[in-house]
Design a protein around this nucleic acid. Structure first.
Length: 301
RNA sequence: GGCUGGGUAGCUCAGUUGGUAGAGCAGAGGACUGAAAAUCCUCGUGUCGCCGGUUCGAUUCCGGCCCCAGCCA
C-alpha cells in the first residue's frame, strides 16, 4: 500500500492486516529511524499494538540507511512473516524504497562514505566533467544540474572502475511497458483539498503533542536523518528566529510539497490500483483492499 | 485639513525616455536505480487604483478623485 503522507495509510493498514491475517512492513525512509516519533508521524501505539510492525524505528538515527539496505532488511522481514504463514503488507510512502523491493536494484558495490564525502567537495560542474571522462553515455543522458545523480553515477564508475551505464539495468517491466502481475498493490490518495487539510491538521497536532520538545531533546543524528521534514524549521524556532506560527506554516508547506512529489512518483512509477479515500468510508476502504489481497507480496531476486 | 511617498501577477516589488510589462516568493506540472521526507527540471495576461484630458496610441505625460503609509497641523 503506497500513498502520500497524511493520507491515512497507517490506520487503514492495521485493519487490512487484521482482516487478511497480515503483518505490516513499513516502507518509510524516516520512520525507520529511532526517535523523531512525532516529527515523522510514526503510527501510534494503539495501532502498532494490534498488528506486528516491522522496520519501524529499528535503525539508529546515526546509522547509514539507503534503498539497498532497506531492501535487504525488508526481504528478511518478509521472509520471517511468510515463515509464520502470514501475509506481508508493505506500507509506506518512500517510493524508491518500495521500488527497490518490488523491482530490484542493479548489482553494485555498497556506498563508500569516504568517497562520497570527497565528491561532495567538488562543484557540480567538476562532477559533470569527470563523469563525462569516465562514462560518456551516462553524462549524455543524465541531468547534469542534478548533483546527487551526477555524483552517484561518478561513484559507481570510481568504485567499479567501469562506466556506470551498462551496470545499471532498466527496471524490469518498465522498459517493455509490462506490468509485474505477481504484485498486488494499491495506491491510496485523496482529493487535494482533503489531503492538504489533513496535512495542515496533522502538523498542528504534532506541535500540540510536543514536536518542539522532541527536537530540543534530540541527540546527535546523522546528516541523513537530519533531512527529516521540519527539523530545520523547528531548530530555527528554538533559536527564536521563527515564531511558532511561522514554523507551523513552514512545516505545513513543506509537507504539502512533499506529498505532491510523492503523488507524481506513485502516479508514474507504479501500476498499483488507485483508490481515492476521499470517496470511501474507512470500512469500505478496508473491505476494498482486503478483497484484492490474494497473494503475498513476492520480491524480485 | 496640508505635505511627501506609494497603489503593477495570490504576496513582495522592478520596469516601460509613450508602442498594453517581468523577477523573487507562493502555486501548478514533471523527472527519478544505494542521500528519496533527498536532489533536480519546466511553467508568469495581469481592467499596471478609478475617471477624464493630450496623443495615431497612455500602465507611462497632465488634471481630478479614491485608498494606504509616514510627517506636519
Amino acid at each position: 500500500m503506497v500513498g502520500p503522507t497524511a493520507t491515512g495509510k497507517s490506520a487503514l493498514a492495521v485493519d487490512v492486516a487484521l482482516a487478511t491475517g497480515g503483518e505490516i512492513v513499513s516502507a518509510d525512509a524516516f520512520q525507520i529511524y529511532q526517535g523523531l516519533d512525532l516529527l515523522t508521524a510514526k503510527p501510534e501505539a494503539h495501532l502498532t499494538e494490534q498488528v506486528p510492525h516491522h522496520l519501524l524505528g529499528t535503525t539508529s538515527a546515526r546509522e547509514e540507511m539507503n534503498a539497498a539496505i532497506f531492501r535487504g532488511q525488508a526481504k528478511e522481514a518478509i521472509a520471517v512473516i511468510q515463515k509464520r504463514k502470514k501475509r506481508a503488507l508493505l506500507v509506506g510512502g518512500s517510493g524508491l524504497y518500495i521500488k527497490a523491493l518490488t523491482h530490484g536494484l542493479s548489482v553494485l558495490p555498497p556506498v563508500d562514505v569516504e568517497l562520497r564525502r570527497q565528491l561532495n567537495e567538488l562543484s557540480t560542474e567538476e562532477l559533470g566533467t569527470r563523469l563525462a571522462e569516465l562514462d560518456a553515455v551516462t553524462a549524455d543522458n543524465i541531468d547534469l544540474k542534478n548533483r546527487r545523480r551526477v555524483a552517484r553515477a561518478l561513484e559507481i564508475c570510481l568504485q567499479t572502475g567501469r562506466p556506470a551505464a551498462p551496470q545499471r539495468k532498466t527496471w524490469p517491466g518498465q522498459s517493455d511497458g509490462e506490468a509485474d502481475s505477481s504484485l498486488k498493490g494499491v495506491f491510496v490518495f485523496r482529493d487535494k483539498d482533503d489531503l492538504y487539510e489533513r496535512i495542515n491538521q496533522r502538523v498542528e497536532r504534532m506541535f500540540a503533542e510536543g514536536v518542539v520538545e522532541e527536537v530540543r531533546n534530540l541527540g546527535e543524528i546523522s546528516l541523513r536523518a537530519g533531512k527529516a521534514l521540519g527539523l530545520t524549521q523547528i531548530r530555527l524556532h528554538l533559536e527564536g528566529r521563527l515564531t511558532r506560527a511561522e514554523c507551523v506554516a513552514a512545516l505545513q508547506q513543506s509537507t504539502r510539497r512533499y506529498a505532491k512529489r510523492q503523488l507524481t512518483w506513485f502516479r508514474h512509477q507504479t501500476n498499483f490500483e488507485p483508490l481515492n479515500l476521499s470517496l470511501l468510508s474507512h470500512v469500505e476502504a478496508v473491505a476494498w483492499i482486503a478483497g484484492r489481497i490474494t497473494l503475498p507480496v513476492s520480491v524480485k531476486e
